[in-house]
Amino acid sequence: MKTLHSAVIVFAHGSRDARWREPVEAVARRMAELSPEVAVACAYLELVTPDLPTAVERLVADGARAVHVVPLFLGVGKHVREDLPRLVDELRARHQDVDFSLAPAVGETPEVVDLLARIALRT
């Protein structure tokens, strides 16, 4: 297995419906196509595996020394505002030699807002 230096985790809520994962995993596959040098993994808050600690453990075991967590949430509710930062803080404490960063929820970025508006306006 090749040694990783940086990794990105696409983090989503989770659902009991197996089809719910498909767009999340499609985003991760596209990211891997766009940047093959960066390891990309999916992780979920609940109802689906792997959870965030498990995804991080795998990436760190493969050599990741920087992990960027990208929440695939449209808005900033309790999960993004409180639960996710707490989870990342716990991971920082457990993996002190790994640089963790946390992106804003994708739904709050101007690019996603613009794209969603354009899609909604299609006729």
Rank of each mutant, 00 (worst) to 15 (best):
M1C: 15
T3I: 14
L4N: 05
H5I: 15
V10N: 05
F11Q: 08
F11W: 15
F11M: 11
A12W: 13
H13W: 07
H13M: 03
G14L: 09
S15W: 06
S15A: 14
S15H: 07
R16S: 12
D17K: 08
A18R: 03
R19C: 10
W20V: 09
E25W: 09
A26E: 11
A26L: 04
V27H: 00
V27G: 06
A28K: 05
R29G: 02
R29P: 00
R30M: 02
M31K: 10
M31N: 08
A32E: 00
A32C: 11
E33C: 15
E33A: 15
L34T: 10
S35L: 15
S35T: 10
E37F: 06
V38T: 05
A39C: 06
A41Y: 04
C42F: 11
L45R: 07
L45E: 00
E46N: 04
E46Y: 01
L47N: 02
L47T: 06
L47P: 00
T49P: 00
T54H: 01
V56W: 08
R58F: 12
L59P: 08
L59R: 07
L59K: 03
V60R: 10
A61M: 13
D62N: 05
A64N: 03
A64W: 08
R65V: 15
V67H: 02
V67L: 05
V67T: 13
H68F: 06
V70R: 04
P71H: 13
P71M: 12
L72W: 06
F73C: 02
G75C: 10
K78H: 12
K78L: 06
H79P: 10
V80N: 09
V80K: 12
D83H: 08
P85V: 04
R86C: 08
L87S: 04
V88A: 09
E90M: 05
R92V: 12
A93D: 11
R94Y: 03
H95E: 00
H95D: 05
Q96F: 01
D97S: 13
V98A: 07
V98W: 01
V98T: 01
D99E: 14
S101H: 10
S101C: 03
L102A: 12
A103H: 14
A103Y: 13
A103G: 10
V106N: 03
G107N: 03
G107R: 01
G107C: 07
G107L: 00
E108V: 14
E108Q: 13
P110M: 10
V112A: 11
V113H: 02
D114N: 00
L115R: 01
L116C: 07
L116M: 09
L116G: 00
A120F: 12
A120E: 02
A120W: 00
R122H: 14
T123M: 03
T123A: 07
